[in-house]
Design a protein around this nucleic acid. Structure first.
Lengths: 115, 115
DNA sequence: TAAGTATATAGGAATGTACTTATATATAGA
DNA sequence: TCTATATATAAGTACATTCCTATATACTTA
């Protein structure tokens, strides 16, 4: 886990981002695999705009990146970010999020039609 | 650097604490040595109550402990805290705080009389 | 091109945060 | 015990944050 010297201002901004339960959990979930908004919506008791706003903050800080695939925009961790190892460390501290991933896979919101 | 599993709620609270420039810097300074409020006051452009309030939050979370010695209350990192390794990691990310320590030692607020 | 789904943005309300000044409390020393 | 110094607490204010609802935008498919 290489460490670079990050300015106090910058580092504290990233900690502030991780200092929110929803965003920290999103980070841990994205550690497992990329996810779209409608998938995250399955595991947070929160409106779609709220999820989008959290993702935007993470994206603005360069922690996550997005990729549109058809109708969906998939979010994933930006492994090139200078904060990636911090995110990895931070998310490793909290309990495993497999249960939430399973919940997403059961409801499978991107495949409603069943085809 | 051992990692225990910390609840999302708890972990995000600690990140929130570190998500403030002043508190993150205090953490890095306490990594160097214990300090009293009047010493911290030398390196932050902030009122004494503000410093005290930041220290109180860090103390309430168990990250720092205090020890009164005469007129002064010395704050230090609580190495027994389950978050100590997180604090150590977090503070290792930011630039070295030696300059601020030197500044404190030059002004030496706990020894005003020179005796 | 119209309708449906996914996501983003705008605007606003409630709450939280980080400061400030004023004041209280605790210790030290004359 | 009086005064000075160190620190904590209280109360108020400005600003930031996080949610919401309503609406706009983008893509897909009939």
């Amino acid at each position: 886990m290489e460490k670079t010297n990050i300015e106090v201002e910058t580092a504290s901004q990233v900690f502030k981002l991780l200092g929110d339960k929803t965003r920290l959990t999103i980070g841990a979930l994205l550690m497992k695999r990329e996810l779209c908004v409608c998938e995250l919506l399955e595991v947070f008791e929160m409106s779609q705009p709220s999820i989008s706003q959290h993702l935007r903050k993470l994206k603005d800080a360069g922690l996550v990146k997005e990729a549109r695939r058809g109708q969906w925009i998939y979010y994933s961790l930006n492994t090139n970010s200078e904060f990636y190892s911090l995110v990895k460390y931070a998310t490793s501290l909290i309990p495993d999020q497999d249960e939430k991933i399973r919940q997403i896979e059961i409801s499978n919101p991107t495949l409603r039609c069943g085809c």
